[in-house]
Simulated scan of single mutants.
Amino acid sequence: MEKVENKAVFLTVHDLGSNHNSIKNFVDHESMVEVKSRSVFIHVDVPGQEENAANWPTDVPYPTIQMMGEELVKVLDYLKIKLIVGLGEGAGANILVRFALTHPSRVLGLILIHCVSKGVGMMEYFKDKILNWHLQTIGVNPTAEQFLVLHKFGPEIETVENKETLIQEYTETLKKKVNPLNLRRYVEAYMNRKDITAAIETNLTSTDVMMVTGAKAIHMQAVENMFMRMSKQKTTLLKIDSVGDVLQGAPVKLAQNLLLFVKGLGYLTSVTLPGVERQRTFSGGDQAALGAGPRRRTMSMEDYDTPRIRRTSLTAVQK
């Protein structure tokens, strides 16, 4: 954590049916080498979802999605981290939004992949009921696998050329590395989530947000609906064509846009990736403040990557 104040610090939270490795694999992708070298990534495993986890104690209540969001601040306090950029997928993205709503002064920006703000719908409710029953009584069986594959890759998985490989790798991970009883608890917690749309409209107006969805993702429409309710000065929607799973299906495109987003926050301004312009392209950007001009040769790489104080101070909003 040496000189962490000069680096972009990312806090990541994973989706259902996975653990921190799902996002770590993206961070380790070759397209993220430059970003990773000048950043700090804190990967969080949701309780009981780590590899080879023991069964969650029957006498200990499993935390709600809201509790998970609120408790993330303890991770930052323990590591003495003041500000983070949240990077989450699915249920993990929902958790990060709740963290931002509860602790807005600790969040510089949010990158939300397939985030849904509404509570569970009736169709999703019954699907989850089936999933929970199978996870509880049998383990991760074919029916549960089918639901989680749909949740992960979307209904257009049949059109993907390497679908067999993707599905096999994902389901093998479920069978071997994710505790099915604990997974059921995470699914159940997510199924019982409360609608936070109104809270987002009212209280998530000072945080920069990039919402991301695959054009073939099952949650695409819900992501677009959430985007319509958010501040257009602070929020950008990135829809990636021809993919359902953004992390695995479009890592280069996601890395490029992640870098543009973080540059807009005043970090990593010296980093370049193929196809990435040196100026911010998102709405509400202040190019002069965000370092769009030419780099001064007298500045070291470390100094150049130091965040702009004027931009950083915007996160200290009143609750």
Rank of each mutant, 00 (worst) to 15 (best):
I167P: 04
P180E: 04
L174D: 00
Y125G: 09
L110S: 03
E172R: 12
S117Y: 12
T197Q: 10
M68R: 08
M123R: 11
I196A: 00
V116Q: 11
G88F: 05
H103T: 00
A199Q: 12
L174Q: 01
N179G: 05
L174M: 03
G109K: 04
E188L: 10
E169G: 12
E169Y: 11
L174F: 05
G154S: 02
Y186Q: 09
T102R: 14
W133C: 12
A198E: 15
L96E: 03
I130S: 14
I113D: 06
D195I: 02
C115Y: 12
T207K: 02
P104Q: 04
E71G: 03
K74H: 14
N94F: 11
Q136Y: 14
T159M: 13
F147Y: 15
V85N: 07
I130R: 14
L148H: 00
L108V: 06
W133V: 13
N179H: 05
L101H: 02
R106F: 06
L166W: 09
S105N: 12
K118R: 15
M122D: 15
L131H: 07
T197W: 04
G121Q: 15
V75W: 00
N182C: 04
V97E: 04
K118A: 12
G119R: 07
L135F: 06
L96W: 02
R184C: 07
